[in-house]
Amino acid sequence: MKKYLNTLFVTTQGAYLSKEGETIAVKIDQKIRIRIPIHTLAGIVCFGAVSCSPYLMGFCCEHDVSISFLTKYGRFLAMVKGPVSGNVLLRRKQFRMADCQKKSANMAGFVLTGKLANCRTVLERSLRDHKDKMNQEVVKKVSDRLLIYIQKEMQKDNLDRLRGIEGDAAHQYFSVFNQLILAQKEAFSFLGRNRRPPTDRINCLLSFVYTLLVHDVRSGLESVGLDPAVGFLHRDRPGRPGLALDMMEEFRPFLADRLVLSMINRNQVRPDGFIIKESGAVYMDDETRKTVLETYQKRKQESLIHPFLNEKVEIGSMFFIQALLLARFIRGDIDGYPPFIWK
């Protein structure tokens, strides 16, 4: 199995990436600071004023290494990727399934079951480990509501109904998210989800990590030959990776939300590591961004038992594994898509 762990994050403004033999050279202030063998990487993410030589782009495409370009503060701009691999018949089946409302609803039910189950696990673990530091009754009430949705509603074959459930479940989940903040509560208070741009520190962190997550999920889908733009829950929209956003849902609570909570509660990020603009927009400074990227990368290198395969796998390979399982479901090799459910 190809590695889907190592991502090169380039945040230094003015950096220039080029090809040197079988390596990627990173030049800063006219000096090469590091050379990285191409075979060790699965992707490159460039933030802000970072440029790449045309030869490097072609080199990365030949070796199936994607290059993503983001603004300095993490908004996705574009991706350079080689030809789509995999069987065209698989993509045809994906498109036909996405065109069918009933089959799309079926797939959306799988995805949302994973998302809601993992949201509930985040809440239940917090209740188990820190019940004396939060309003137990409020958090437990939301957890129980998510369980009802999972047990009784995810089998619905109405896509609009499922979107309504997902919207209410997300609202309920984030309504108690502030209860999970156990340190630095004054500076990291959370009143609800906001974005484009985020207007508080927690939303700034969440949006940034979600962007990293989309990049990794998209790479996993493309590696097995699926089209990341054609989703089931998230419908077609120019420039939107609908299928990547679908599969991302099951990873949000487990990987992104837990990562943000952990960094705040362990004081890995500090209030003064953020920049507040006159418009009210909040952005990370360079040091905080570096801390988030390093923590995210280390998290992907941790291992767990995959609930469906019952094997120990690295978290960074989960995107590829789930993409493979989705491809098997679309081909008809398995009866249903088994979302990743964290236990």
Rank of each mutant, 00 (worst) to 15 (best):
Glu278Cys: 02
Gly231Glu: 09
Ser219Ile: 10
Leu243His: 06
Ile264Asn: 08
Glu222Asn: 05
Val269Cys: 12
Val313Asn: 00
Ser317Pro: 00
Phe320Met: 07
Arg266Gln: 14
Glu249Val: 01
Leu325Tyr: 02
Leu259Ile: 09
Ile315Val: 13
Glu287Asn: 11
Pro238Met: 05
Gly220Tyr: 09
Asn267Ala: 13
Asp246His: 02
Pro238Val: 05
Ile321Gln: 01
Glu278Ile: 09
Ile275Val: 14
Arg235Pro: 00
Pro228Val: 10
Val313Cys: 04
Phe319Asp: 02
Pro228Cys: 12
Val269Met: 11
Ser262Ile: 00
Arg237Phe: 04
Ala229Gly: 01
Gln268Cys: 07
Thr295Cys: 04
Glu222Tyr: 10
Leu304Lys: 10
Gly316Cys: 02
Ile315Met: 08
Ala256Gly: 02
Leu245Arg: 00
Val269Phe: 14
Lys300Trp: 03
Gly239Phe: 03
Asp227Glu: 15
Ile305Cys: 01
Glu314Leu: 13
Thr295Gln: 10
Ala256Trp: 01
Thr211Ser: 15
Arg240Ala: 10
Leu245Asn: 04
Leu293Gln: 14
Ala327Trp: 03
Glu249Trp: 01
Leu255Val: 14
Lys298Gln: 07
Pro228Gln: 13
His215Lys: 09
Glu250Asp: 06
Ala281Val: 09
Ile275Met: 08
Met318Glu: 09
Gln268Ile: 09
Arg289Phe: 04
Arg289Asn: 01
Gly231Trp: 06
Leu221Asn: 09
Phe251Gln: 06
Met247Pro: 01
Gly225Asp: 08
Asn265Gln: 09
Val292Met: 14
Tyr296Cys: 06
Leu213Met: 15
Met248Pro: 02
Phe320Gln: 09
Glu278Pro: 01
Asp272Glu: 12
Thr291Ala: 15
Met263Gln: 13
Asp216Thr: 00
Phe251Asn: 06
Arg218Cys: 13
Met284Pro: 13
Ile264Pro: 07
Glu287Gln: 12
Arg258His: 08
Arg270Trp: 03
Ile321Ala: 02
Val230Gly: 00
Ser317Trp: 03
Ser303Glu: 15
Val214His: 02
Phe320Arg: 13
Glu302Trp: 00
Asp216Trp: 06
Ile305Tyr: 04
Gly220Val: 06
Arg289Ser: 06
Asp286Thr: 06
Arg235Ile: 11
Leu245Thr: 03
Pro307Asn: 11
Leu325His: 07
Lys300Tyr: 10
Thr295Pro: 01
Arg240Glu: 00
Val269Ile: 12
Leu261Asn: 05
Arg289His: 07
Ser219Asn: 15
Asp246Ile: 05
Arg235Tyr: 07
Asp227Ala: 08
Met263Leu: 15
Phe254His: 14
Phe254Tyr: 15
Arg266Phe: 02
Ala323Ile: 04
Lys300Gly: 03
Leu261Ser: 10
Gly231Pro: 01
Leu261Cys: 11
Arg252Phe: 04
Leu326Thr: 03
Leu226Asp: 03
Phe308Thr: 15
Met247Ile: 11
Asn265Ala: 08
Gly220Leu: 12
Leu255Pro: 01
Asp285Arg: 00
Ala256Pro: 05
Met248Phe: 01
Asp286Gln: 01
Leu226Ser: 14
Leu326Lys: 07
His306Ser: 07
